[in-house]
C-alpha cells in the first residue's frame, strides 16, 4: 500500500506542526503544511496529494475560506478526498461537502476530535479510500431535529456510528457486541427508515445522511 500523501491546511502554527508530526508517525506523509486558503489551492496544484486535511475557518477572511477552497478543489479534481475540520458544528458546511461529488471521499469533523489520535487517523484513511465520515455531533443534531421515536436508544447509537462511516465490524468493536447483533440493528434501522438493505458501508452512510437531511 503506497503511503497517503497529505496536504494540510491549518492556520494555528502549533496545531499544524502537531498534526503534521502525528500524520508522519502514522505513515501519512504531509507533503505540504500551509496556513491559508490560497496556499492550500497552490499546494494541491503542485503536489497532487491523495488527501486534503483543512481547517474550515482560515485567513485571510477567517470565514469559511477553507471550506470554499475544499469545495472548489473537489470541483476541479473530482474525487479528491477532503477532511474538513471545524471549530463548531455548522450543518450547512457539512451538507455542502456531502453535496460535492456525491459525498464520496468526504470527512467533516469537529476539530477537537483530532486528540483521539487513533480514531482520527482511522477517519483519514477511510476518507482517503473514498469513504464518507460525518462527525457524530452532526449526526446527533440531525437526529435531535428529526425526532425518530421509531428508533430505540441502541439503534440510535448504531445509526450514529453508521453515519460516521463505520463498518459492521467496527461498530461491533466500539459497542462491544457481536457483529451479528450489529447486522440485525442495522437491518432494523434501514427498515424503519424505509431505506433499502445495503451492506456497502459507504452507500449506507449516504443513504442515512440523505434521510436525516430530509
Amino acid at each position: 500500500m503506497s503511503p497517503i500523501r497529505v496536504v494540510l491546511a491549518e492556520d494555528g502554527v502549533l496545531l499544524r506542526e502537531g498534526l503534521a508530526g502525528l500524520l508522519h508517525r502514522f505513515g501519512l506523509p504531509v507533503v505540504a503544511a500551509v496556513g491559508d486558503a490560497p496556499a492550500l489551492v497552490e499546494a494541491v496544484a503542485r503536489e497532487e496529494p491523495d488527501l486534503v486535511v483543512t481547517d474550515i475557518r482560515m485567513p485571510p477572511g477567517f470565514g469559511d475560506e477553507g471550506l470554499r477552497a475544499a469545495v472548489d478543489l473537489r470541483r476541479t479534481r473530482p474525487g479528491l478526498p477532503v477532511v474538513a475540520l471545524s471549530q463548531y458544528v455548522e450543518r450547512g458546511c457539512a451538507v455542502e461537502l456531502l453535496d460535492s461529488h456525491g459525498g464520496v471521499g468526504v470527512g467533516y469533523l469537529l476539530k477537537d476530535r483530532v486528540v483521539d489520535v487513533e480514531e482520527f487517523v482511522d477517519v483519514l484513511r477511510r476518507v482517503a479510500a473514498g469513504g464518507t465520515v460525518i462527525d457524530p455531533e452532526v449526526v446527533r443534531q440531525l437526529l435531535a431535529r428529526d425526532p425518530l421515536d421509531r428508533l430505540s436508544a441502541r439503534e440510535r447509537e448504531v445509526l450514529a456510528l453508521v453515519a460516521e462511516g463505520c463498518s459492521n465490524a467496527a461498530i461491533a468493536r466500539r459497542l462491544v457486541v457481536s457483529e451479528a447483533a450489529v447486522g440485525k440493528h442495522v437491518g432494523n434501522i434501514l427498515a424503519k427508515l424505509d431505506l433499502p438493505p445495503d451492506d456497502d458501508t459507504n452507500r449506507r452512510v449516504l443513504a442515512v445522511l440523505a434521510h436525516l437531511r430530509g
Partner: peptide, 21 residues
C-alpha cells in the same frame, strides 16, 4: 482564548494522545 489557550491546549492534548501510544 481561541488563538492562545485553546489552540495550545489542543496541541498539548494531541501530543499526549500520541505519547500514550
Amino acid at each position: 482564548l481561541h488563538d492562545g489557550a485553546q489552540e495550545k491546549l489542543v496541541s498539548l492534548t494531541l501530543r499526549l494522545g500520541v505519547a500514550r501510544l
